[in-house]
Design a binder for these strands. Structure first.
Lengths: 365, 365
DNA sequence: ACCCTATCTGCAATCGATCGCAAAGAGGGT
DNA sequence: ACCCTCTTTGCGATCGATTGCAGATAGGGT
């Protein structure tokens, strides 16, 4: 292995340009550039370029006590929701000279806590977090300690920190209204974990709008909750819904991943989507338009969510107090193939053993 | 904003424990822990825990000249290929105390170059790069300068650096053989950019296997190249293929994204997949199994690719010279709904104006 | 000619952890 | 009692850039 190039320091540049290192530092720092005469400044810049000088962020960071680095904690990069968001964050951060340090928590409180530790040791200047409910306390502490934090996607109850979220209530309302306008009356809800704000808000909005349309009669029978927002978590609640035997012609799933599970389970029970049961999700993840059936869902911009979160954080970091603390992103309906008018004969959900019962029910219907 | 907690330094711990800062440093560094007596060591650890001490990576980095940080350059996180890979990288890096700094290049040589600069200024200890062809030279230089670099997914010709790639030739061979075994004889290829190794290798393997089966007669007529591996880039070459009028019943696309474009264009021309034309991709991106039609493709583990790349890099960083320099990942066929037996009557690709001609052709067929 | 101000640049301490060197101390052997 | 070795710990310079302070220089005014 050939030896690495000897690093060029401000001292090297200073010597070559015949000035003091301090002067070089000032020239290269836009903030202080004006303190130096145009003449020396250009000379120093010239020399710096010739020598191929580049600041050592680490050394700078030690002195200035800031790393120009931001910790980003998300559950799982592999969830299609996050890549666009992370890009939004990075696209906003980079021009400002910041870099993101990404950490996946897998929604595990332990890992989240450890991530916070690690990132803190790395002296990140702030955090962008999609929090896990269990660590509300820790996040609260951070905020109270004055650590710049922006929450994304999820919000933490009773903590008045900075946050960017989709308009969960409005989105859920639009989704359910869409189903109603198609003629559905028996609308089930595969809810997200009630410990997380999106799960809660979407569920509440569902209840409200059902009530508003006089469809609330034993609505609890039509609701089942997943214990996570991840793929696979939607299987159990959908099965539960089927087993209860309470008929429904449409499902509002708390997010796209759950909606996909839901469609799978329905299909396994012999129920086609959308002919027998309509399903609508939430998030408009990339590529769901190509799915079979193309998923109807509620859209908001994940990229924008990330970008805004980064923007808010940069505002905090620069001490700008005039910036808003909370941003709610607009949601819109995207109607695709997974929602349609309800079947002519009322669809009866199967009783007893899922599979065979479903077949029976279909035969009857 | 309440003031931040005063940071606890090794000096604080030293004072409290009645020892020298150097001693504290040694206790807390596993490498040198054995130099200190068990008694003082435990006492120091105790105090450190009480005070909530955490190393300042920045200060450490300044002294040790390493940041425990790795630069990761990828074209676009939003391309479904990359999230699993990045997770693989991070899952391997974290336990070793390293953190990834992610940069998206959008396959733009300028941005890639700038990314390398920025990351270098941040003193990353090494790089994991999915290189853009234009910067072969730069990457070569880095390697020659002794900068630890691992290439992923793409390889750089004539540079004997570390690399992890899928088995492109084998994968392509399997794909084409699959089509042949289904009964296809006229198999087109929507190729990737020939400046990138996967584009080249997959194309060559296609040619070889076609020749081997005596299907090579004017094969050039059945090949068109995309100028990128990204979504949308597959539209033009597919249209070109159609306009040439040379009949084909199957397409081997150089990756999944191109395959999707291909299916779209065919569909717009009135050709159904797989009834009229079979299409197979490469990569097995997440969720393509849910697409309409479910995409047949060649699978290799993106997660593993990332993990291995990180592993190779860590090996380099620790000066382990026994490790392999190049890893080729196994590929396998995933047969789904986008490939089927060719139609009974030979499918003739349309001539002239794409859309209407296609309809005519269908009517005839 | 002299003083004052404004502009520019040098000086040196500092951020926090690390590590080569050497001193101090403990224990063993004769 | 003395010397030698080995273990443990302290000392202080160092990594590279930044920045408060003060010195130096130039220019202007009277």
């Amino acid at each position: 292995m050939p030896g690495r190039k000897p690093p060029v320091t401000v001292r090297d540049v200073a010597r070559e340009a015949g000035v003091h290192p301090g002067t070089v530092s000032r020239v290269l720092n836009p903030e202080r550039r004006h303190l130096i005469s145009e003449q020396t400044a250009t000379r120093v810049e010239q020399v710096a370029r010739e020598l191929g000088y580049g600041v050592n962020h680490i050394a700078r960071g030690l002195r200035t006590r800031q790393s120009s680095t931001v910790g980003v904690l998300i559950p799982d990069l592999t969830n299609p929701l996050f890549p666009p968001m992370v890009r939004g964050i990075e696209d906003e951060l980079h021009p400002a000279g910041y870099t993101a340090l990404l950490t996946n928590t897998d929604s595990d409180p332990q890992r989240e806590l450890k991530g916070i530790e690690t990132l803190t040791a790395r002296q990140v200047d702030g955090f962008i977090i999609a929090p896990t409910e269990t660590n509300v306390q820790r996040v609260k502490e951070m905020i109270e300690d004055g650590v710049p934090v922006v929450l994304v996607n999820r919000t933490v109850p009773r903590v008045s920190g900075f946050a960017v979220t989709p308009d969960d209530r409005r989105g859920a309302t639009i989704a359910v209204e869409h189903l109603i306008s198609l003629g559905h009356r028996e609308i089930a809800h595969v809810g997200g974990p009630q410990s997380l704000s999106p799960g809660q808000d979407r569920y509440r909005a569902y209840l409200d709008i059902m009530r508003e349309h006089g469809l609330e009669r034993d609505a609890e029978q039509l609701v089942a909750f997943a214990d996570a927002f991840t793929g696979g978590a939607g299987v159990a609640p959908t099965q539960e819904l089927l087993q209860r035997g309470r008929p429904f012609t449409a499902v509002f799933a708390a997010n796209d991943l759950l909606a996909l599970d839901c469609i799978d389970v329905l299909r396994a029970a012999g129920l086609r989507c959308p002919q027998d049961v309509s399903v609508i999700g939430f998030n408009d993840m990339p590529f769901v338009d190509r799915f079979d059936p193309p998923l109807s869902t509620i859209r908001f911009s994940h990229y924008e969510m990330g970008r805004r979160a980064a923007e808010l954080l940069l505002g905090q970091l620069s001490g700008d107090t005039s910036a808003p603390r909370t941003l709610v992103l607009a949601t819109e309906l995207v109607q695709r193939g997974s929602t349609a008018r309800p079947p002519r004969r009322r669809q009866t959900a199967p009783r007893g053993r899922t599979r065979s019962a479903a077949a029976t029910s279909l035969a009857r219907g």
